[in-house]
Amino acid sequence: MDEVQRRLAHIHIRSSECKGCRYCVEICPKRVYEMTTVYNELGYRVPQASHEEECIVCRRCETACPDLAIYVKRMGVRFNRRNLSVVDASYQR
């Protein structure tokens, strides 16, 4: 499987609204996030999803984000695999 096929999610971060609490960085079971050295306009260091391809869409980060600044968007998967033929499963079931 190549990279594109393995990717389950796109992670969107509203960095301008992040207050840098690190919950996402620490809570992620797949260690998708890393803190950057970038400060946003509020003056907080913000994380980035450096290893987005590792995301398993558990949404722990999204539900734990106190700033409502994370959206884990499940991606459509183009290939057929056993029980994983997701066409366009958005969060909004």
Binding site: K19, L42, Y44, C65, L68
Partner: peptide
């Protein structure tokens, strides 16, 4: 937004 709560405050959750 951004809301007025402090870093890590549980109210956003």
């Amino acid at each position: 937004f951004p809301h007025l709560w402090c870093q890590g405050c549980g109210l956003g959750i």
